[in-house]
């Protein structure tokens, strides 16, 4: 039985391989979404669908409507419908494991999209979250300040992302800190990533060191808004570089105005496009290990090693502000509101 299955699978694989060069169309690429209640997944879907259909494959989707149980039945249904590859945005990354096993047993290839599912056969495609922290720090060193008194406004203490981000940030800043060039003068978590809480934290920080702050590492754009408001009250906005992430419209405007140094932007469309391209390749029989940029990832809660592609996010500064405008993420009017003519290239 087992042997028979293996031979079959090998046969199918060979068939797939041989047909790859000839014609790569007609495959079913399926996506199991956790919910469409959140607006962003529609953005991802549009990107995935476009790439899948451009390659002549068929796009099939199922919406789990925020239920782990429905997602299980969804995936079983997708397997029966003859999907070649299933992308899964898992609602519950543990409860979904039986579905991944069933898919693996049926020879269907799985991609865990954005949310890690710790199944050894699945490919994990996501933005490099530790990399966001690294990118913030790297941009700060290259385009902001590389030495001086640094303040760290971290996210909510209950959110592991705040810690991941901080790890990435420290990784990059450590050499300069060890050399005594960078001093950590304030470091606080911010309840619920709230901008107004970040503002208070920054005010207290500035008071405690009598405004001797040269740079602020804020872990997202919302908090960066609070930080800039606190700096503004001390007449420091624009002279002290501030980091952020998310590509918030208000933050991109601050980047254009010069009060925020960088907003690390995770474009859902880039992620969707990359994942869909991988899905096309895998449907055509390419092994996960042969994909461009693939590596091993074992940073999950259980430490299971999976093949993963970590997409680098895009740090948006004044220099590449046109990326978000040309990409249709924000209109030029919104990004450039209040910007003095000629000061930012993207606004001309």
């Amino acid at each position: 039985m087992n042997r028979k299955f293996l031979t079959l699978a090998a046969g199918a694989l060979m068939l797939g391989m041989s047909s790859m060069s000839a014609q790569a169309a007609g495959k079913n690429i399926c996506v199991s979404w956790k919910t469409f209640q959140e607006e962003r997944w529609k953005t991802d879907e549009a990107a995935i669908k476009a790439v899948v259909e451009a390659a002549g494959n068929k796009y099939v989707s199922a919406d789990a409507q925020g239920s782990a149980a429905k997602q299980l039945t969804d995936i079983e249904g997708l397997i029966t419908q003859g999907c070649n590859v299933i992308l899964v945005v898992a609602f519950d990354s543990d409860a979904i494991l039986p579905a991944f096993q069933a898919a693996a047993d049926a020879g269907v290839k799985m991609i865990s999209y954005d949310v890690l599912v710790e199944h050894p056969d699945a490919l994990y495609v996501t933005f490099d979250n530790v990399g966001v922290g690294r990118l913030m720090a790297k941009t700060m060193l290259e385009k902001g300040k590389s030495e001086g008194d640094f303040a760290f406004i971290k996210g909510d203490k209950g959110d592991p992302n705040a810690t991941f981000l901080f790890q990435g940030i420290m990784e990059v800043l450590k050499p300069n800190m060890d050399a005594g060039k960078i001093k950590n003068v304030c470091e606080t978590f911010t309840d619920g990533w709230k901008p107004d809480a970040a503002q208070k934290n920054m005010e207290q920080c500035l008071t405690s060191v009598n405004n001797k702050v040269d740079a602020v590492i804020s872990q997202n754009d919302g908090m960066a808004g609070g930080v800039v408001a606190a700096l503004e009250a001390q007449g420091l906005a624009g002279t002290v570089p501030v980091t952020g992430q998310d590509g918030d419209k208000a933050a991109l405007n601050r980047v254009a105005l010069g009060t925020q140094l960088v907003s690390v932007w995770k474009d859902a469309r880039v992620l969707g496009k990359a994942a869909a391209e991988f899905a096309n390749l895998i449907a055509d029989g390419k092994a996960a290990t042969e994909l461009p940029g693939v590596g091993k990832f074992s940073g999950g809660a259980k430490g299971v090693e999976v093949n993963a592609v970590l997409i680098p996010p895009n740090p948006i500064t004044r220099d590449n502000l046109s990326d978000v405008i040309d990409g249709g993420w924000i209109s030029k009017e919104e990004a450039c509101a209040g910007v003095a003519a000629g000061s930012v290239a993207a606004c001309n």
Partner: peptide, 16 residues
């Protein structure tokens, strides 16, 4: 007061 102070408004303002 809060939104003027923050110079922006977010849906998280005033939480807790």
């Amino acid at each position: 007061i809060s939104s003027a102070r923050l110079d922006s408004a977010t849906n998280a303002l005033g939480q807790f």
